[in-house]
């Protein structure tokens, strides 16, 4: 590029550089409008109701965070979401790794199974778990037949049932993003680790896990956040004694018509979720993601 031209080319270039960005924002307008009308407005309305009903003030939040019943619901919700995330990680990481390294023909079959289960109706799958987990269900009968237990275990209408059902439902949401991350890792990186003297455990801990961290984090966040607000599965498998937050909100709205308290609960959930997302962005978004250019 000659210097004589630069005085005229620079402004043109700059306009060009802005072009795609400005066009991008224009393309986003329909989505932004949709979100504004169907997400932002209802959320603000809910927030408004939580501080205006029945009388203006923060009494809904005080009640929510002060009553033992409601705190227990929060505790149940976060505990179940945490345990579900943990188990999903423990099961999902090996699954995603297997999918990444197995021959393509086999991984396609595995993917089909994974996606088919995801696309099957949620209610059908949850009822199926009720059948499997009940006192005289398949799981209890098999365990008794092989002599692991003498009496049937109570696997539904409690948090065990919720955890089992949720883990199953959440698995694809972790495996899919994690698989994408793992497949981008060059297998010879692990060979290099082995020839450098790293045992399998060291290669996993020092190389594979750090490189997979962005995928682990986004998958885990997805599972945790979805679990926090999940309704159907906890409602069906958890019974009435072990309530989670989404059920509480539904009950407050449908049975008690207490929109203020329901709004407060929903808003607390939203704040927690956004907070978690911010933490992830801060520590794992961009910068040293480990997946730099190779």
């Amino acid at each position: 590029m000659s210097t004589a031209l630069s005085s005229t080319t620079v402004p043109v270039r700059r306009r060009f550089k802005l072009g795609p960005g400005a066009r991008g924002i224009k393309l986003l307008i329909p989505v932004l409008l949709l979100l504004a009308v169907f997400f932002l407005v209802p959320v603000l309305a809910l927030l408004l109701r939580s501080i205006m009903e029945p009388v203006p003030g923060l009494q809904n939040y005080v009640e929510l965070l002060g009553s033992q019943t409601y705190v227990r619901v929060f505790f149940n919700t976060f505990m179940v979401a945490g345990v579900v995330t943990l188990i999903t990680l423990l099961v999902g990481f090996p699954t995603a790794w297997l999918l990444a390294i197995m021959p393509k023909r086999w991984s396609q079959v595995m993917f089909a199974i994974l996606l088919l289960s995801m696309w099957t109706n949620l209610l059908a799958r949850t009822y199926a778990w009720m059948v499997l987990l009940q006192q005289t269900g398949l799981v209890n009968r098999v365990l008794m037949a092989i002599g692991v237990i003498d009496e049937p275990l109570t696997l539904v209408n409690n948090l065990i049932g919720v955890t089992i059902g949720m883990t199953y439902i959440m698995l694809p949401f972790l495996v899919l993003p994690l698989h994408a991350t793992l497949r981008a890792i060059d297998p010879s990186t692990l060979r290099a680790a082995a020839i450098c003297g790293a045992s399998r455990w060291q290669a996993l801990r020092l190389v594979l896990l750090p490189l997979a961290l962005p995928g682990i984090a986004s998958g885990a966040l997805m599972v945790f956040v979805m679990s926090l607000g999940y309704y159907v599965t906890p409602a069906l498998l958890g019974g009435t004694g072990y309530m989670m937050l989404a059920e509480l909100i539904a009950q407050l709205v449908q049975s008690l018509l207490n929109w203020g308290l329901a709004g407060a609960a929903a808003f607390v959930l939203l704040v927690v979720t956004l907070g978690l997302y911010a933490v992830q962005l801060r520590y794992l978004g961009g910068g040293r993601s480990g997946m730099g250019d190779r």
Partner: peptide
Amino acid sequence: MVFQRYTLFPH
């Protein structure tokens, strides 16, 4: 061992 592609640990 040195490999064909750069197999340094990127992180």
